[in-house]
Amino acid sequence: MSKTYHLTAPLSDEDVVQLKVGDIVYLSGIVYTARDTAHKKLIDLMDEGKELPFDVKGSVIYFVGPTPPKPGDPIGSAGPTTSYRMDSYSPRLINEMGQKGMIGKGKRNQEVIDACVKSKAIYFGATGGAGALLARQIKSAEVIAYPELGPEAIRRLEVVDFPLTVVNDTYGNDLYEIGRAKYEIKD
């Protein structure tokens, strides 16, 4: 049976090892946004031995490119983008920099799943296409790097009870495979 947790980011090893696929997590605290282009820039900085624009250790990165905020709002609609585009970058951030969480939607490759086991990290799924609903849980947003990327800039978000489902846990499980096998009807 799936369990429900309330956690605060940044996350520790103790936070993540208790989680299993299908568990519901309401996440509060600090989350950073990054999509493909920002991820590539982070990896380039690592290759050059330079400092990254935020402390990746324990961090949760949300794969999102929000709409522009309406006047008075911290952020526009902000649901997850498809995560496989970050597959070539995530393992290094997890294994070498200590990233603990990713928020997105859609399948990850085996390298990401392996990194989640090896270095204890979680891939969380958020509901794609629920951008207006999810934005309500984001209390502040500040661009901290690459403003020229517009919606793809790195933002520091303060979130409260952001609703997530554990898709890949630290034990190598994949909710997409388990869930689908349960409901598949063979011809």
């Binding site: 526009g76 609609s77 649901g79 794609g128 296409g129 629920a130 207006a132 609903l133 919606p151």
Partner: peptide
Amino acid sequence: EVLKQLLENADIAANEARPLCQDT
């Protein structure tokens, strides 16, 4: 639960004139 969130999202978007999804 996902479908419930999507229906709620549609409600919020319509009532507050917000984009349904960030990918417009």
